[in-house]
């Protein structure tokens, strides 16, 4: 089986079959990662550039590890120390890298649609590692993988996405993926951090009361407050945010039910999530990180046009 698309620009463009294929391939790679020798030769003829125009530690490390586990040659390119700081355009930067015979581009960029722009102009396969406030497809895939692993299903699963939905590419990718796979989604957070047309555009419920959302859901995916992406103040203070929307043990215990807690990281401890929840028994946050490598291996492997 093959993916229906030559790039991984967003979950929006994937079919249900694509998503299932990536998740089942990831399962196989997860098994590989349990072996003493965690490496396979699948992409030994492939060169991949990790092009990060925004700071990232975990996503970049996860991609790099996935690439090395597949035996690909890896080139890391970070914007700060590069030609971008000298005013080079994105297209020039990428074309220069491609002249060195690079086959795939993994890109993170602060502008929504940047990988879509690149896909129109360059011949290499592109993996979106996060574009602006649009999508972060591999995060949604690893979240889905982790939810499925923990709960045994996606179909019919009730997932609450809580926090700064407006500035979160994780939220949008998760919503696309979960609704395509038959899960139900509620987004919850302050009204200024939830796009006005959310419910109509994406077939989700909107809830401004976090406790009600938690009471409803099986899984709560708690988002990071993206202070760096807010161009204007959208809530009064972190203190008030934490009081009204933060998730703590007392809140979870008041639910009289068990729910799974997820977070894409990095956590603002004490803001959106208290440490006793983040590190508590309901949390699968570190499983998400672990699964990230297997899921990214699957995506890269399938995009390199290797049949599964």
């Amino acid at each position: 089986m093959k993916l229906s698309t030559p790039h991984l620009l967003g979950i929006k463009d994937l079919t249900r079959e694509d998503i299932s294929l990536i998740l089942s391939t990831a399962q196989q790679f997860k098994e590989v990662l349990q072996r003493p020798v965690k490496k396979v030769p699948s992409l030994r003829d492939v060169t991949i550039v990790n092009l990060f125009f925004e700071n990232s530690t975990r996503t970049r490390s996860s991609f790099e590890l996935a690439e090395r586990r597949l035996s690909a040659d890896v080139l890391n390119f970070t914007a700060g120390a590069s030609s971008v700081a000298k005013g080079e355009t994105l297209l020039d930067t990428v074309n220069n890298i491609l002249s060195m015979k690079v086959d795939m581009v993994v890109m993170r960029h602060s502008a929504s649609g940047a990988p879509h722009f690149l896909a129109k102009h360059i011949p290499a396969a592109i993996v979106n590692a996060g574009d602006g406030i649009n999508e972060h497809p591999t995060q949604a895939l690893l979240d889905a993988f982790s939810m499925q692993e923990k709960t045994g299903k996606l179909e019919g699963l009730k997932v609450a996405i809580i926090g700064d939905v407006m500035h979160s590419r994780v939220a949008l990718s998760n919503i696309y993926l979960l609704t395509k796979m038959g899960a139900e989604v509620t987004v919850a957070g302050p009204p200024t951090l939830i796009p006005k047309y959310m419910a109509d555009a994406l077939n989700v419920r909107v809830e401004y009361n976090v406790k009600k959302a938690l009471q409803w859901c099986d899984v709560a995916n708690v988002l990071r407050i993206q202070l760096e992406r807010q161009s204007q103040p959208l809530f009064s203070s972190l203190r008030e945010y934490s009081l009204a929307y933060g998730i703590n043990r007392r809140l979870l215990e008041s639910l009289n039910k068990e729910i799974v807690i997820m977070h894409p990281g990095p956590i603002n401890r004490g803001v959106e999530l208290d440490s006793d929840v983040a590190d508590g028994p309901s949390s699968i946050i570190l499983n998400q990180v672990e699964n990230g490598v297997a899921v990214r291996m699957a995506a890269l492997y399938l995009l390199a046009n290797r049949q599964n």
Binding site: P195, Y197, A201, Q232
Partner: peptide, 21 residues
């Protein structure tokens, strides 16, 4: 309109672009 990049609506929400209401 200051921070928007396209008309705010269903399409902008789906595209992950900040809207201009």
């Amino acid at each position: 309109s200051k921070y928007g990049l396209m008309h705010e609506g269903i399409v902008s929400t789906r595209m992950g672009l900040p809207g201009i209401p």
